[in-house]
Design a protein around this nucleic acid. Structure first.
Lengths: 230, 230
DNA sequence: GGCTGCTAAATTTGATCAAATCTCAAATCT
DNA sequence: AGATTTGAGATTTGATCAAATTTAGCAGCC
């Protein structure tokens, strides 16, 4: 068992949730794949109850789709879905950084600046922890918005974006530009400049989107991704 | 049991979900109230398993909040939350009607126009079914957007808005204006005019927001709503 | 040959029971 | 007296087992 209750998670359902989310986001379980209870009972070494709770959660999160009495399936990926995800994310994440820009305390400023530093260091060193730190930065911006609903909605879109982003990772060049993009966004937020923060964020997301689209097309050209119609 | 699997719902968990959602949205269970498993086991005449699954779903939907080993609580309501909800809803629902405007088929046009007619009739007759039809109209617009993610995110915001809207119902005047607002929005969407559809929608939501704010202030003046900090 | 209906296996879904955790008040210690 | 510990009751959480549903294969029929 990779994680036990106590390592941040308080219940087995939380453990199952984290494991399933990671398996889906990483692409380990490809789109369209059915998630069989028995398989994860064995793999996660727990009964089906917490796993089923985690699946209900993930259903409303948009990562899986349920067909009653037939099972749950990893949500399909497609260029349309990617486009849909990013357009909405642009709207909401813009709002988030604007709000964050207007609410920053000194403590927030030092915390998120340090976070970017750690991310930069790990990314340049090729440390795989950089992936988590990258997520932490964006999550922090969501939190700093002070909006309950942005904090609920944006992680849903983030997780879906992340599925495409991981596809594009192998194709990416050096990390310097991406580090600078994050540093500049955070600086604008820390400086309390919503206009600049929003503009930098939009550019950043657009770049990220372009990279994902390219990776996706390359992939769709060869194999055809599982595309169950809902 | 109000609903059995077969009346639209395929599983008991769906039944529990519908019942709990309605109880929360209607205000029957006030904000801050703990939802005790045993109580709903008896009330819904089912074991705790499907109820727990429904609760996980509602948690990610934003209607309840969980405290591990302590229970789940109905999410608090506040002027800030109302404001947060409506601002995001304005962004996303605007996008939805714009997209819908560009995708309407003849079949869609007749279907949603008939829906507005039924809503108008029921509303003028004081038939309580009008409430459901009102929801159906907005849900249809979400669906017609063709966006998976809007269809996932907007009902979350809708449900939360609905909690405030129900508060404001007693204070409202005649339904004629609201009927016309919906008719005009749907006409603009059916006519394929995204700009006009968006503008009418924004006005409609703003009016709805104003009514809710007024009702909320009236209420906050007297009793204090349960306000657990998250 | 192709279609229909039946049976068995696999799987999801639900019920029941047991364990773990939290709450809160009474008891003990300083 | 005030603070800390302990223990009983309530509640959530998890495991196990049973029921219901779907699916796939196969026999029988037109």
């Amino acid at each position: 068992m990779a994680l036990k209750p106590g390592d941040g998670a308080r219940t087995l359902a939380d453990v199952a949730l984290a494991a399933l989310r990671e398996a889906i986001v990483s692409g380990e379980i490809p789109p369209g794949t059915p998630i069989r209870l028995q398989e994860y009972v064995e793999r996660l070494q727990m009964s089906s109850v917490p796993i089923r709770e985690a699946l209900r959660f993930l259903e409303q999160k948009g990562l899986i789709e349920r067909s009653p009495h037939r099972g749950v399936f990893v949500s399909p990926m497609s260029a349309l879905d990617l486009d849909d995800t990013y357009r909405i994310r642009l709207d909401l994440e813009s709002r988030a950084v604007r709000l964050a820009s207007e609410r920053m305390t000194d403590q927030d400023r030092t915390r998120i600046t340090e976070m970017v530093d750690r991310y930069a260091k790990a990314s340049l060193a090729g440390d795989p922890i950089a992936r988590d730190l990258h997520g932490d930065i964006h999550m922090s911006l969501y939190e700093l918005s002070g909006s309950k609903w942005l904090l609920l909605l944006l992680p849903m879109l983030w997780d879906n974006s992340e599925r495409y982003r991981r596809l594009s990772l192998p194709l990416r060049g050096s990390p310097e530009q991406r580090i600078e993009e994050h540093r500049h966004i955070v600086e604008a937020v820390a400086a309390g400049d919503p206009d600049r923060a929003e503009e930098l964020l939009r550019t950043h997301l657009s770049n990220s989107f372009e990279a994902a689209i390219a990776a996706l097309h390359e992939l769709e050209a060869s194999e055809s991704l599982a595309g169950e119609s809902v």
